[in-house]
């Protein structure tokens, strides 16, 4: 499954990082603690979070994540989107809560 497939299936907004929409998704991880994601997310995972600052992109890049989904209608900061574009790692958005979004994502990735 590619990032673009979950954008379509979950009706996600694409904030930035359009060049990375073709990346392959290998799993998911939901957390708002950066060290938790650093230590436990697998390469290729989609990260579901309410964090919006640019350090999110540092983690996503360092751990080779496929995309970031920001929940609860939150929007990424400008510098977050800039880095997302530079790294070609999409930042996506949804009005759903982390719980709702993670449930739906899990169902389609299984």
């Amino acid at each position: 499954m590619k990032v673009t497939d979950i954008v379509e299936k979950l009706n996600l907004k694409v904030f930035s990082g359009h060049e990375g929409l073709g990346a392959e998704i290998t799993g998911g991880y939901a957390s708002d603690l950066l060290s938790d994601v650093m230590g436990h997310a697998e390469a290729g995972a989609v990260w579901v979070t309410i964090q919006t600052h640019r350090n999110v992109m540092a983690i996503a890049s360092l751990r080779d994540l496929s995309a970031v989904i920001i929940t609860c209608g939150e929007k990424p900061g400008d510098d977050t989107m800039t880095q997302s574009n530079e790294e070609a790692i999409p930042v996506l958005g949804t009005d759903l809560s982390t719980f709702e979004l993670a449930g739906r994502l899990h169902a389609i990735l299984r």
Partner: peptide
């Protein structure tokens, strides 16, 4: 910001 969860040094150690 999501830092300061007391996981950094244990992550390094692991």
């Amino acid at each position: 910001m999501g830092f300061g969860a007391g996981m950094g040094l244990p992550n390094i150690s692991a």
